[in-house]
Amino acid sequence: MHETQQLNHACVQQLIDRQLPEGGWPFTPDRKQSAIEPTALALLALPSNSLGEREAAIRFLLRAQNSNGSWPAFIGDDEDGCGFTGLVLYALNRRCVQAMITDRAVHWLVRTRGWESHWLWKWKFRTSDRHVRFDPDKFGWPWVPETLSWVVPTAYALLALRHTSKTKQKDLLRFRVRRGVEMLYDRICPEGGWNAGNGVVYGTPLAPHPDATAIALLALLRERPNDLITTSLDWLERRTESCFSPWTLAWTILALDAFGQPTGRLTNRLCTVVDPRVVNDCATLAIVSLALRCAEESNAFRVTHEI
């Protein structure tokens, strides 16, 4: 067995060991509160021979869904929805959960928008509050309803909606996807790449973040190749040359692999820095497992067709 396969096997085993009886995962194994992001990523990471764990995770996510179609950030959370809803929908779609439940999630996503899209806030950002450079006509999704759009929830929502074919709201869905893509291009950092969502503040360019850049690139995978994507891929490759953080390395591998770039060196480095027993964070374990699977030509984020 190759080193990457062995390591992936160990990551999956750790994930299985850390799954809570209710089917979800906490962020860290010393806690008992299921959280949505690690659970969605673990669902994507579990292989087909972990059918029981997968089904328990799916049942958990279906139970956790809010009545408005969104997902809470963790069990016990308020029921207004969170920025991980797109990621959950994407994971459920990948596991072929196509039912009324995912329709409700699509419904929530196409109706939830960053508040810069509201006329009053547009006016504010165009007149009195102009220190952050962005175009409020280009909006995506917020972390928390009734706040502004940010890069990661927008990228997660785009991933989900771009792989949603069965919906009664096709026109609205297309409109939201287009606006979301425009928002990502609008918020790009001057040197390429993305951070949380502010490219320039007080006239000063801000530095991009590798994980946000990788997730945004995955959301733009179906876009025609263009300079913004190329510059961001180049920046991501350069930035991670000296990076040793498993979370960032794993997201970078997934993004570069999805765009057909070589990832062998980064995968080798990931193998040297990850000891699954020591990685405390379950979301990190899951994303590392997904990245290692790229060496076997399987990338959970490279989908060439609608699910």
């Binding site: 959280a35 950030a73 920025g83 917020p142 972390w143 706040t147 940010w150």
Partner: peptide
């Protein structure tokens, strides 16, 4: 952040 996002926009808002 897991509840309020990155950044914790609600505090600014």
């Amino acid at each position: 952040g897991a509840k309020y996002g990155w950044p914790k926009n609600i505090l600014h808002w």
